Computed example of a mutant assay.
Amino acid sequence: MSDSSRTSDGGLTPGQRMISSCSGAILTSLFVTPLDVVKIRMQAQSKPQAFAKGHCYLYCNGLMDHTCVCLNGNSVNISMNENITWKKNWYKRPGNFNGVFDAFLTIGRNEGITSLWSGLPPTLVMAVPATVVYFTTYEQIKVGLGHSYNTPVNTWWVPVLAGSSARIFAATVISPLELIRTKLQSEQLTYRQVHEAVRRMLRTDGFLSLWRGLSPTLLRDVPFSALYWLSYETMKGKVLKERNSTQLSFFESFLSGACAGTLAGVVTLPFDVIKTHRQIELGEVTLAKEKKQVSSTWKLIQNLYRQQGIKALFSGLAPRVMKVAPACAIMISTYEHFKHFFRQRNLESLENR
């Protein structure tokens, strides 16, 4: 490892930060995915009409969202390549669940423990690279703004600007890939058919169709990222100052991440509600090929307020916090742990020269 490849972030290279964020994303997916699998299975049991053919639902494990199309027929495998397959209709398997804990036991006993991770493959396909881009970009921007890893962030706008910019960049880069991934899943396309499908979509709807649905994603994720990083860096700075240290413990990172994620999740809940409705609406038009007109985001807000009042924008608080808080906690604590590991390793390497 050459000195020129190192950055001011404690000697870490971009590659080492990428490995750290990738590890965090994988662990987060492994721990949180079963929660959403159980939630979706219980929703399919209580509201089967919401999972009718051609309708869409949102799969979200706290790390990333996926718009999925409901299909009829028996559960079959869809192969993204020879190493990545998943069952289309895992969310429509029969079950008589009396609660969350009973669902965990019943699914594990009757279908095998691996069924609790039925939604994991599509998450790993998209969420891991998206998270790597997001966290690596955040760190690069923060370093570019003059922040060093061993000094607390004393200026509030640094994490706000870095977090917002990183989220905009990551979402913009990943959005076309997510659209293509969902088309692969819903239309059973092979990789050989992807090129033609993309060309057809560009010819019909134009180049910007690749970013369809980006605006509601940014509406939620940019404020969330800004508030999350501001909260996390503030808590981190106070702990480091009190202990006169340059490194949080794993537990301190975990707790700070959970608190920051909870705060950001609660404040941005209305944006999450809007984003969920908008993504499902767009998904049913784009993927299920329905011809109905998609309303604007502002029109959707007006309709929600007219039909259910202000409470419509604050629905689903408990499920959101239950996923976002542990996802943020696991992600940031794992990320910080691996960064610390690489810093120590780089330091030992320099000392042994």
Rank of each mutant, 00 (worst) to 15 (best):
N96W: 02
K87G: 10
V100G: 01
N74V: 07
I113S: 03
I107H: 02
I107E: 00
G112A: 01
D65P: 12
C68R: 15
K88H: 11
N77T: 08
N83E: 09
E82F: 01
N72R: 11
T114V: 08
C70H: 05
I84V: 15
W90N: 04
N81G: 02
I113N: 01
T114G: 01
A103T: 06
E111S: 09
F101D: 06
N77H: 12
K88Y: 10
N77W: 12
N81H: 06
T67I: 15
G108K: 03
C68Q: 15
S115T: 08
N110T: 11
N77I: 05
T85A: 08
I113G: 00
L105K: 15
G108V: 01
W117D: 01
F104V: 03
E82V: 00
N83H: 15
F97R: 04
N98V: 02
N89C: 07
W86Q: 02
I78Y: 15
T106H: 06
G112C: 03
C68L: 15
L116K: 05
F101P: 00
E111F: 08
G99P: 00
T85Q: 12
D102N: 10
L105M: 10
T114L: 12
L116Y: 03
I107S: 00
K87I: 07
G108E: 00
N72C: 02
W86Y: 14
K87S: 14
R93M: 11
R93T: 10
K92E: 08
G95W: 03
N110G: 01
K92M: 09
D65V: 11
T85K: 13
I107K: 03
K87L: 11
N83A: 13
T114H: 10
A103W: 03
V76E: 14
V100N: 03
N81C: 09
I107W: 04
T114D: 07
T85H: 12
G95A: 04
N72K: 13
D102H: 08
R109P: 02
N96R: 11
D65S: 15
S75E: 14
V76W: 09
I84M: 09
C70M: 08
W86R: 02
T106S: 12
D102Q: 07
T85V: 08
D102S: 06
N110I: 01
N98K: 10
V100L: 07
G99Y: 05
N110H: 12
K88D: 09
K87V: 08
W90V: 04
R109S: 13
N72S: 14
I107L: 06
N77E: 14
C70F: 07
L116S: 01
N83R: 14
I78P: 00
T67M: 12
S79M: 05
V69K: 13
N74T: 14
K88Q: 13
H66Q: 15
Y91K: 04
G99I: 03
S115Q: 13
N98W: 02
N89E: 11
